[in-house]
Amino acid sequence: MKKLLLLMLTAVAAFAFKIAGSGYKAGDIATDFKLKNVNGKIVSMADYTSAKGFIVIFTCNHCPVAQAYEKRIMALDAKYASKGYPVIAISPNDPVAEPVDSYANMQKRAAERNYTFPYLIDETQNITRVYGAQATPTVYLLQKTANGLVVQYTGAIDNDQPEANAARTRYVENAVNALLDNKKPEVTGSKAFGCRIVWKSS
């Protein structure tokens, strides 16, 4: 019995470790994707020939934390798309397990809120897995370089989910501003608090 318990515990620990250790961190080269936008078109970062980089955000319809950040995500695109860092939003969740995140509901939300950026569905969840997002919303700030798309920041949008503190640390804005200034971001990572990704049941 003790052996069995030990085995179970080891399996549990291995699972936890796998999650904690995976995914992109600052300095990694990010892979491009081909994902379906809410307008039916396939979007790839290679399509953006004049962009300097991308604010890739794994977000979704159903999560209250993602909803709390929705306006801030829209503001990021309004502020930085013209400066060469557009937002690309990706919904990572399995619509079977979370119907609020279905493609049709994504189309509805993007239209209702007038999203100015693509809202892509990661149907296979492969991009989410490779990037290593664990929760919505999670940001990956990518910079185009000769070596590829370099990850410059991963994590939360800011450290003030309830928008209660005007002096909040705006991680993503600070990082993009640094890149626009030809500097490295001072903070290259933070914890993305939010709703766990709803994975397909395997």
Partner: peptide, 19 residues
């Protein structure tokens, strides 16, 4: 004070997802 600080205090390996 904020989620990020608490998450790191609880455990550096916590991604921030619930539960």
């Amino acid at each position: 004070n904020n989620d990020q600080e608490l998450i790191d205090e609880i455990d550096k390996n916590w991604s921030g997802a619930l539960p």
